[in-house]
């Protein structure tokens, strides 16, 4: 039996303006998840990638019983998330990124105590579990300090400890490494991998491709509510193995340059990262020799400072999938 089963799941939102006593919440209806299906095996570490607003968090919230699907079906360990929420809640942990979601006036230990009480974990088992988790997330020294004085990274580590309190069989990690320093993020990845090795099913969303590449047995890519790819990281990378990535660092990139690069026939996809002093273009193309002259011609006036070529990574595969999906959508809309 799969630990998580998702069948033709859809979810529509009415983007709500906050309700008041005198007004109803209303807004534009929007379909956030559009008929996605996938399974996650027991003990599997599964990644869900996608741009902001693609539907990843909505999918996790449905699986964690916080939202109902509009149509379709989702089961966690055989329990329907819509009709058996309590059975699902007993078996899952849910960690969302961000500063909020903790009781600021309570200490780290008391936060964990309260959530342990909510899960019915009491007595010596509670004390032992809290001590283990505080040790695991390296907060033992600060365990009796109020959370209001915690840095973002410390809060995130406490979120993670809370999500693992009830020793969940399925753990949802929604961008868990946001705000963590590199060492803490590495520790978290090690923890997630260890949990998976011990049989915990982990569903991870992240924007960090190296994280997904390192951890996930399989990855689903969601774009605009649709699952556009579902495979192992190696297979996803293979999908762009016929490509080469040209990295060009420039100092004076304009929108016109960007549009002209996109318009080049040899360019299959483009990602731009803008830094304070320089801009980096990651250009995917089928053949470096064909693309390079046109590319350098267009960027000649953008003060090129560095040009490299390399083999495609998971990030390149992801960028290609997202670009391809958006282009197909735009074509269909036209």
């Amino acid at each position: 039996m799969a630990a998580v089963e998702v069948e033709n799941l859809t979810r529509s939102y009415t983007a709500a303006r906050s309700a008041s006593l005198f007004t109803k919440a209303r807004g534009e209806a929007r379909q956030a998840v559009k008929g996605i299906s996938f399974d996650i095996g027991e003990g599997e570490l599964f990644g869900l990638l996608g741009p902001n607003g693609a539907g990843k968090s909505t999918t996790i919230k449905i699986l964690a019983t916080l939202l109902l699907p509009t149509s379709g079906r989702a089961r966690v360990l055989g329990h329907d998330v819509a009709t058996e929420p309590t059975a699902v809640r007993r078996r899952i942990g849910y960690v969302a990124g961000g500063d909020r979601g903790l009781y600021e006036r309570l200490s780290a230990r008391d936060n964990l105590r309260y959530f342990a009480e909510l899960h019915g974990i009491t007595g010596p088992r509670q004390r032992r579990r809290i001590a283990e988790l505080l040790e695991l997330v390296d907060l033992t020294d600060r365990s009796d300090d109020k959370v209001e004085g915690f840095s973002r990274g410390m809060r995130q580590r406490l979120h993670i400890a809370r999500g693992m309190l009830n020793e969940p069989r399925v753990l949802f990690l929604d961008e868990p490494t946001i705000g963590l320093d590199p060492q803490a993020a590495r520790d978290l990845r090690a923890t997630a991998a260890a949990l998976s090795a011990q049989g915990t099913t982990v569903l991870l969303t992240t924007h960090y491709m190296h994280e997904a590449d390192e951890l996930c047995a399989r990855i689903g890519v969601i774009v605009e509510g649709r699952l556009v790819a579902l495979d192992t990281p190696a297979a996803l990378k293979k999908g762009v193995s016929d490509r080469t990535v040209i990295t060009v660092e420039v100092r004076d990139l304009t929108d016109r340059h960007e549009a002209e690069v996109r318009a080049l026939g040899e360019v299959l996809s483009l990602a731009v990262t803008r830094g304070p002093a320089t801009q980096v273009l990651e250009v995917q193309c089928a053949d470096t020799g064909d693309a390079m002259p046109g590319l350098l011609g267009v960027l000649g006036s953008a003060a090129v400072s560095r040009v490299d070529t390399r083999e495609p990574s998971l990030e390149d595969a992801y960028v290609a999938l997202v670009s391809r999906s958006r282009a197909a959508r735009a074509e269909a809309d036209r």
Partner: peptide
């Protein structure tokens, strides 16, 4: 207001006792 509602709602605890 404190952003902790989700964690309360996904707990299996009976709302009566909460």
């Amino acid at each position: 207001a404190f952003g902790t509602l989700a964690q309360m709602l996904i707990s299996p605890a009976a709302r009566f006792w909460i």
